[in-house]
Structures are given as C-alpha cells and as structure tokens.
Design a protein around this nucleic acid. Structure first.
Length: 452
RNA sequence: GUGGUUGUAGCUCAGCUGGUUAGAGCGUCGGUUUGUGGUGCCGAAAGUCGCGGGUUCGAAUCCCGUCUCCCACCCCA
C-alpha cells in the first residue's frame, strides 16, 4: 500500500493546534464584532470567469482550476489539444476555480445582492483561500484569510477605523507589530512628477533596498531600469525620506506640490494621521513609501502589518479600492478593507509561544474509572459539572490507575477526580491537582466554586 | 515559472571511500506488590532506506529520471 500524503503546501491540524487556531479566529472575530462588522460566507469555488483577470497575469497563473465533470473533452478538437495553448484550453476544460482571496468573491456578492444590502456595508469573512504558489516558510497553498471591508463609503474615517482594528487585534494577541501605511495616489504623484508613470514598481523596489545596498547602489539600480538622471535627482528626497510621519509628510508635500494626484494622496495621508494622532495606538504606525502592494486594484491608502519579533512576510494587508465592483457591472462603489493572514499569525504565535493558558480548551477534570459501581455514582455528578460549564470527561474503562493518571498527564488535564468506595461512602469526590499533587475531599458545589 | 537543497523507525538523526541479520536518542506499548501520574529500572513493537530504472557478484551508499521537503527569486497572507 502506498503511504498516504497530503498535497504540498497544505497541512493537517491536530486537536492542540486547532484550539490554538480557534483562539486566533475567536480573537479576530470578537474584534470584528466590536467594530460592527457582520459575517458572510461565499463558496469555496467560483466561476472561473469571476476570478480570471482580477489579479493580473501572475494571479491568473496561481489560480487553482477545477476540471469540468463528465466528458470534459467534448467541444475540444484534436488541434487545440496538440497546440498546447494551455491557457486557452483551460477556459474550455474548467468552468470553476477555487477562490484566490475573499475580496473578489465579496465584490461579486455585493453586485449580486445590491438590492438587499444597506450601504455602507461592513462585512467580515473568515474562510480559506487557495493559491497554486510554490510553498515556502509562511507560504501555503491553502490558508485562511480574515477580511473586514467597508464598502459603499468614501470616508477616510473607515481607514482610521481599520487601523484601530488592526491595532486592537494585535494588542489582544499580544504580538508586537508595526503597521506600514502608504497611499497609491502618492506613488502615482511621484511617477507623475518624474515623468515615468510605468516605473512605479521599479522605483519602490529600488528604494526598498536602501538599507541593504546604500544610496549609491539604489541610484545605480534606478538608472539601470531606464530612469533618467533628472528623475533620479528629483527622487533623492523621497529615497532618503526619514523622521516622524509628519516630517515625512511635509517633505512629500513639497516634492509633490505640482502633482494634483500626489497632493490628493498627501492630503488623505495627513487626514488619517491626524485622526490617528488623537487616539492612543499600541503599535507603531509608519509611513512607508516602499509599500506598493496590490498595485493592481488599490487606489488610495495601502496597509501592511509586519511582526517585529518574527521573520515572516506581512501578516495583514489591505487598502482602498475605488471601483472593485465595476468589473461586475456596478460602478462607483468604493471600498476599503484589510485581511488578516491567520496562518501566518498562527506561525508567529507558535514561534513566540504566546498562547494564554486558558486558550487551550482541554478537559478540566478527568474522572478516574474504578468500575461499574463507581461509574454509576459519577455519571450524574459529571453531568452536573458540565451544566455548570466545567469541561469533564471520564476514562472509558477501569484501567489501571497509573494508566488513567498518565492519560491525564499527557493530555495536560489539570485535575483528576478519584472516586472509589471510600468517596462514595462519604458522598464526596477526591479532587487531585495534577500539578501540585495535592488532593482534597470535596462536594460538587465546592468543585464548581474552586474551578471558576 | 527560474535556480539551489533535502529525503534512512512516529520524531530528530548516525551509517567511513558499495560488503553479511540498517543503528541510536526521544516517543509509543507492556512490565516494575491492582487507590495515585510526571523520574528510575527491565522489556517489546516499529524501517518497501522517498519512488522508478541502471551499474555491480553485491547498492541506504555510485549513475539517470521522477516526486517531495526546505531556501532564494517572483509574488504575496
């Protein structure tokens, strides 16, 4: 028999891992609720036409496509097969694909349900997504995203709220992070003033290397990308941008004064920073011009969250998109959203071992099984304890005590209840603290009180 | 998609330039006066040496292919 395996880039989760993951999901969900977001779900698979073309050429390659059922070769002639035009063929063989993110299916949902939605719509969604990427550390082919978006409102207050939401979640999870913020309009403005509108990506990639390779090499790289000397000298203040957010802002204001879109971007950034300044954030918020993520559909603010204590890609990302539903026939609906990467957060939390003690929902009391008579005495007690919200299990057979206590030990069950003839006679329960070894004869009420 | 790397017991690994029945630690299971776990002691089970082919009298070891793992690029959560 062949050894069983799972597809690459996917993982199984054990009971302990699941309780850790649920701690993350619950924490995020709780924060979402506090900020007034409401949950929806969408199917794992979408029509391929919904997904294709929304993530750029790269994204299209990373889509998992689902082979049609039945005779999927009907309607395909031999010539097409031998030509090997895989992309074209794929659209004939596959009508469905696994979702690549939660934002595009959400846009589709909004368009389909526009008559029932009251705008502005604050929705959240916690579901897995799939990407046919090459797996690496912190990169999986199946992973969960936790998205919160506000759609149908241009107000920058939404951006301010989402920043608070990110701050809140990471404070609850006790992960030290930095929120990076940029604005797509500022990047457009920069491209405009140096007259190189197609080179934004090259510019941000080069600027990002400043710490590693130094100013001189950054300029060399820019030149090698075909950017003129004049443009490079205009870029200098931006490459060397330093200091507090408001200091950066004033440099940008000056550099971008002749670009209308650039000024708009700076204005937006300033508004957000001023409002955030009124609040007390726990984490740092940095203006970072090298942040160019999601260039394909973001149009305003761009966010990214980096963990400070673990080397891993960004653990949350998001931004403002002005016209996402336009491609589905509903123009003019603006949205802004963020996406928490639950699997990376899981990796961070594991590495730092930041799970609170009570987040692991293991059994609290194991009843040791002595035999049938004792079982009959214990069962009503157990059900009483469960009614009081205490997690209880009984060892299912009258095995040796050593074995039963060993079971409690490996499962890290904090208490065992030892009920034999003596306890039955006294109508009590011997509760043993597995950590200290201490044990006390108690009745049900005492146990309920002491475990709460 | 491009380049590099890894693969031996459930886990972490050893196995020298090819040579008999492939080893260790941890873990698992059992025993260690049947109402007390974590430590100790004794014992046991467990491996198509990733898979397929080749070279050879003989391959875990050499060669080719393939898959997988991890890493860099790309992209991203």
């Amino acid at each position: 028999m062949q050894k069983p395996s799972i597809p690459k880039g996917t993982r199984d989760f054990s009971p302990i891992e699941m309780s850790k993951r649920n701690y993350i999901f619950n924490t995020i969900r709780e924060a979402f609720h506090l900020f007034g977001f409401q949950q929806i779900e969408t199917p794992a698979m979408e029509n391929l036409s919904t997904l294709m073309g929304k993530y750029g050429d790269e994204g299209d390659k990373l889509l998992f496509k689902i082979l049609n059922s039945g005779n999927y070769l009907s309607g395909v002639d031999q010539n097409e097969l031998s030509e090997g035009a895989t992309n074209k063929l794929a659209t004939k063989l596959c009508e469905k694909g696994l979702r690549y993110d939660l934002t595009v299916p959400f846009a589709r949902y909004v368009v389909m349900n526009r008559n029932d939605i009251t705008f502005p719509f604050r929705r959240y969604q916690i579901q897995p997504v799939w990407r046919a990427d090459r797996p690496q550390r912190g990169r999986y082919r199946e992973f969960y995203q936790c998205d919160a978006d506000v759609i149908g409102s241009d107000s920058l207050l939404n951006e301010v709220e989402l920043i608070q939401l990110m701050d809140d979640v990471y404070q609850r999870l006790n992960i030290r992070v930095a929120i990076k913020m940029n604005n797509r309009k500022i990047l457009s403005g920069i491209a405009e003033i140096i007259g190189e509108p197609d080179k934004i990506v090259d510019i941000t990639v080069a600027i990002d290397k400043l710490d590693k390779i130094g100013l001189e090499n950054v300029n060399i790289e820019l030149a090698s990308k075909g950017i003129s000397n004049e443009a490079i000298s205009l870029l200098q203040p931006i490459i060397l941008l330093e200091g507090h957010n408001f200091e950066k802002l004033s440099v940008l204001k000056n550099v971008l004064r002749t670009s209308e879109i650039g000024r708009k971007g700076v204005e937006e950034l300033e508004y957000i920073l001023r409002k955030i300044d009124l609040l007390k954030l726990h984490c740092e918020l940095d203006v970072d011009l090298t942040l160019a993520r999601g260039l394909n559909y973001y149009t305003g603010a761009i966010f990214e969250v980096k963990a400070l204590d673990v080397e891993i890609g960004s653990i949350t990302g998001g931004g403002r998109y002005d016209n996402l539903t336009g491609v589905f026939g509903l123009p003019g609906v603006s949205g802004v959203g963020i996406s928490f990467g639950a699997d990376r957060i899981f990796d961070v939390l594991n590495q730092l071992d930041l799970y609170p003690q009570d987040s692991l929902l293991t059994t609290q009391i194991l009843f040791v099984n002595f035999g049938e008579k004792e079982e009959e005495y214990c069962l009503p007690i157990i059900s009483e304890l469960r009614k009081a919200g205490i997690r209880v299990e009984m060892y299912p057979e009258a095995a040796k005590m050593k074995k039963q206590l060993g079971y409690a030990d490996t499962k890290k069950i904090p208490y065992t209840a030892i009920v034999g003839e003596n306890e039955i006679k006294e109508r009590k329960i011997m509760l043993k603290n597995m950590q200290t070894g201490e044990q006390k004869l108690m009745n049900i009420e005492q146990i309920i009180v002491s475990l709460h």
